[in-house]
Amino acid sequence: MDVKSKEARSKNMAAIKSRDTRVELKLRKFLFTAGFRYRVNYKITGKPDIVFVGKKVAVFVDGCFWHACPACYREPENNREFWRKKISGNRERDLKVTRELEESGWVVLRFWEHEVRKNTESVMEVIKTVLAER
């Protein structure tokens, strides 16, 4: 049972961004400042957050709540069955998207939201290394 009315919950959910989140913008700013050029919301399987088309590298920044980060995720108290199904579906879709992209010759990099927020430089190093290898 949800503690909010259907209208209030709808308003809350509508305000949640699926792209151009603060953490995505932070990573993109770091990459751009370092001289990297990339595409945003490029139309390939899974719509990665950042794509290096020529190198075939797709970068996803997964939200800790929406993708059940092992370090951060706490199951909601309300409407548990709905959230279990929702988060489980997100995780299954992530695996499917990663598999499909890799089968198509792409390198897929996935970072947790908290990694980008707290350790942007180390995330950048991983991206730089992968791009240099391609």
Rank of each mutant, 00 (worst) to 15 (best):
M1S: 15
V130H: 04
H67K: 04
E133R: 15
R39E: 12
R110C: 11
N41A: 15
K56N: 08
K6D: 10
L101K: 01
R9Q: 14
R117M: 07
G46N: 09
G105F: 02
K85M: 10
I50K: 00
G63H: 02
N41M: 11
F30P: 01
A68F: 01
R80L: 10
F52Y: 06
K96T: 12
C64F: 01
V130S: 07
G35Q: 11
Y42G: 09
K56S: 06
F111M: 03
L95W: 09
I50F: 00
L95I: 12
N79D: 06
L109G: 03
W66F: 06
P48Q: 03
R110F: 10
D20K: 10
F60K: 00
E75A: 13
N119L: 05
E81L: 08
D20P: 08
E121F: 11
H67S: 04
G35T: 13
E121H: 12
S122R: 09
K47W: 12
V130E: 14
F52W: 02
E81A: 12
A8C: 06
K29D: 12
V51E: 01
I16V: 10
I44R: 00
A8S: 10
L101T: 06
C72Q: 13
V107K: 14
F32A: 10
V53A: 11
R22P: 07
D2K: 15
T45N: 11
E115D: 12
K11V: 13
K6W: 08
L27A: 00
L131E: 01
L27S: 00
M124A: 11
R99M: 08
L31R: 02
H67C: 03
R9M: 13
K6G: 04
W83A: 00
K26G: 12
K85A: 14
E113Q: 07
L25K: 04
M13V: 14
I50R: 00
S104C: 14
S10V: 09
